[in-house]
């Protein structure tokens, strides 16, 4: 067995690994935070289609501005807002539901994106966009991700009450005169920002893993919104950094290693969580919640005599 300290420190001798680790921690933490809101707002798959819909924006930005992070951010932001706008309009003005509308435009935007990227003269690596390369992140990418992480933390610190109300009970939030629409737009904006931040590292296909897996895992353990936010961010960091080490030592690509680590944490939780896990369900068996105390009580025996006639 190798020296555990060496296992931890060895990779740090390489600048690309050190940068990758910082990147993984940043997008893991920020992704865990935004993911919590997306999971509780039931927008997990909307976020996924969002990620794909950013592609044409990034492609066009690449055509115009080259592979610069700033151009990508602008392109992705424009594409993201456009998707939100047309999908929102389609779901309000037609009989399409919100998820169908997002599905429709995600496919159209994705097709346009692949088309644009295939026509670029520059040697654009589509695979790179789809799957990312966390070992190739630049200083600029790190700065962007640090900025997005800071913005995410600030937005949650300022707006957590509104976010909680928007996710929990929109009708009440609106009726009380709360800023429901701005809150919804803020969620979409944070989603776009975090997608762009995670894009370089884990790519469009796997970035959902950084959003959804830590939040879904935390959801299995927490009964409070605040606790879920912290646990989800912590799990994001653990999965990101753990996945990087795993990838390094087992010679696996980093993106799948991160998603795989987060996936394992989720599966373990789904098995072991005392309240919501499979094992807990099996152990509790036929127990019911009693009306007021919430304590488990055994199933009462069947009535002694079947109901008498007359």
């Amino acid at each position: 067995m190798a020296d555990p300290l060496a296992l931890l420190l060895d990779p740090l001798h390489y600048q690309f690994m050190a940068r990758g680790l910082v990147m993984a921690a940043l997008i893991g933490a920020a992704g865990g935070l935004v993911g919590t809101v997306l999971v509780l707002r039931r927008m997990a798959l909307v976020a996924d289609s969002f990620g794909h819909a950013l592609l044409p924006g990034i492609g066009l930005a690449w055509l115009v501005g080259g592979p610069s992070t700033a151009a990508m951010l602008v392109g992705a932001g424009v594409a993201g807002l456009l998707t939100a706008l047309v999908s929102g309009l389609a779901s309000r003005l037609t009989r399409l539901s919100e998820d169908t509308a997002f599905g429709v435009f995600f496919v159209i935007f994705m097709a346009a994106g692949v088309g644009i990227l295939s026509r670029t003269a520059a040697p654009v690596d589509l695979l790179h966009l789809l799957f990312g390369d966390i070992l190739a992140v630049t200083r600029g990418d790190l700065m962007l991700s640090a900025g997005v992480f800071t913005a995410t933390v600030l937005a949650l610190a300022v707006g957590w009450r509104w976010l909680a109300l928007e996710c929990f009970d929109r009708g009440f939030f609106r009726a009380a005169g709360g800023p429901s629409l701005p809150t919804h737009l803020a969620i979409l904006t944070l989603t776009v920002l975090n997608l762009v931040s995670a894009l370089q590292a884990v790519g469009i296909v796997l970035c959902l893993a950084v959003f959804i897996l830590p939040a879904a895992t935390a959801y299995l353990w927490c009964e409070r919104f605040g606790a879920m936010l912290f646990l989800s961010a912590g799990l994001g960091v653990l999965g990101g950094v753990g996945g990087m080490y795993l990838g390094y030592h087992l010679s696996l690509p980093s993106g799948p290693a991160i998603a795989g680590t987060l996936g394992c944490l989720f599966l373990l939780s789904a098995l072991l969580s005392p309240r919501h896990g499979l094992l807990g369900h099996l152990l509790r068996g036929h127990q019911h919640l009693d009306e007021t105390g919430g304590r488990d009580c055994a199933l009462p025996p069947p009535p002694a005599t079947p109901s008498a006639q007359g």
Partner: peptide, 25 residues
């Protein structure tokens, strides 16, 4: 306002006390 019973929010992780406190937000 108390909307029509809506099961969609029921999964939100929050205690009774905190829901009541939302009235002050």
């Amino acid at each position: 306002y108390l909307a029509q019973a809506d099961a969609s929010a029921a999964g939100f992780p929050i205690t009774v006390e905190e829901v009541v406190a939302q009235g002050r937000y």
